[in-house]
Amino acid sequence: MKDFDHLMSVWQAQPKKEHLSVDEVLKQVKKGIRSFTTRLYWGIVAMICTVVAAFIIMFFMAFKSPATTSGILIILLAMAMYLYVMLRHYHILNKHDLTQNPTDYLNSLKQYQKDRNRTIGWLYYTYILLISAGLALYFIEVLENAPLYFKVLIYGFTIIWFMFTTFYIKPRMFKNEEEKLNLMIDRLERLQDQFD
């Protein structure tokens, strides 16, 4: 009996789960999604401008070497691939209205998270490799008459920049986004559990 009383006192001492305010959760989730979609929107705009600039360079500048044109085509392919994924993620986030069907919205957020996690790894590295290969081919002709120290400086800076973005910026940026996304999904799941 003593153990039962002790067990009852421990059970009753457990903190009660706080009930989430529906309005507050919806406001926070909408704000978080708006942050994601705004960042994606401006990324899409920047990528489209960059693709247009690359097309202009490729078609209106006279290059002697086919390697230069191949380099620009490889860069365009990489940017088009990344642009497609950004558009797809933007569409997933804007597909459902949170207030009309919260379950569908939660499922679309989970789909976005799964899709994003799957593509972040291989797509980012593929993108960096293609951009690097394209720039290497592009720089062959562009830096043809440059002094050796300038070539080493440009190639070295490009390599350092790609290493910095790949191993320093990318993990921090995606970890931060992942935490925000997990928080939104957790809040929506807790809210859903309150009503089940």
Rank of each mutant, 00 (worst) to 15 (best):
residue 125 Y to W: 14
residue 157 F to A: 13
residue 145 N to L: 09
residue 30 K to R: 11
residue 76 L to D: 00
residue 179 E to T: 12
residue 65 S to T: 05
residue 17 K to H: 04
residue 193 D to H: 08
residue 58 M to S: 01
residue 164 F to V: 11
residue 42 W to S: 05
residue 63 F to A: 00
residue 185 I to G: 02
residue 145 N to R: 10
residue 189 E to T: 13
residue 172 R to N: 07
residue 108 S to D: 11
residue 191 L to Y: 03
residue 148 L to R: 14
residue 3 D to W: 12
residue 182 N to T: 10
residue 192 Q to G: 02
residue 193 D to T: 12
residue 139 F to Y: 15
residue 102 P to V: 13
residue 62 A to F: 02
residue 130 L to S: 02
residue 67 A to M: 12
residue 158 T to D: 03
residue 101 N to C: 09
residue 118 R to V: 07
residue 195 F to H: 14
residue 70 S to Y: 04
residue 160 I to T: 05
residue 86 M to T: 04
residue 161 W to S: 08
residue 76 L to I: 00
residue 100 Q to V: 10
residue 121 G to T: 09
residue 26 L to A: 14
residue 66 P to I: 10
residue 61 M to S: 13
residue 7 L to V: 12
residue 123 L to Q: 02
residue 52 V to K: 05
residue 150 F to D: 04
residue 62 A to I: 03
residue 171 P to F: 13
residue 97 D to A: 09
residue 194 Q to P: 00
residue 170 K to W: 05
residue 161 W to Y: 15
residue 100 Q to K: 03
residue 115 D to N: 10
residue 111 Q to W: 04
residue 89 H to G: 07
residue 75 I to A: 00
residue 6 H to A: 13
residue 39 R to F: 12
residue 128 I to V: 09
residue 129 L to W: 04
residue 64 K to V: 12
residue 153 L to C: 15
residue 194 Q to A: 08
residue 113 Q to C: 09
residue 17 K to M: 02
residue 166 T to Y: 07
residue 46 A to G: 03
residue 64 K to S: 06
residue 43 G to S: 04
residue 16 K to S: 15
residue 90 Y to N: 13
residue 117 N to A: 13
residue 33 I to Q: 08
residue 166 T to L: 14
residue 155 Y to D: 01
residue 128 I to S: 02
residue 25 V to T: 11
residue 21 S to D: 15
residue 69 T to N: 06
residue 73 L to K: 01
residue 22 V to K: 15
residue 9 S to N: 10
residue 92 I to H: 02
residue 157 F to V: 12
residue 14 Q to A: 12
residue 174 F to W: 07
residue 158 T to S: 03
residue 50 T to A: 07
residue 49 C to Y: 08
residue 92 I to M: 11
residue 53 A to W: 10
residue 140 I to M: 13
residue 97 D to V: 07
residue 21 S to H: 14
residue 180 K to Q: 09
residue 120 I to K: 06
residue 105 Y to A: 00
residue 187 R to E: 04
residue 96 H to Q: 13
residue 173 M to D: 07
residue 109 L to G: 00
residue 9 S to A: 11
residue 195 F to N: 12
residue 34 R to I: 13
residue 12 Q to H: 09
residue 60 F to C: 07
residue 97 D to F: 14
residue 136 A to W: 12
residue 127 Y to H: 15
residue 18 E to R: 15
residue 119 T to M: 06
residue 120 I to L: 15
residue 154 I to S: 04
residue 179 E to V: 11
residue 161 W to L: 14
residue 56 I to A: 06
residue 26 L to S: 05
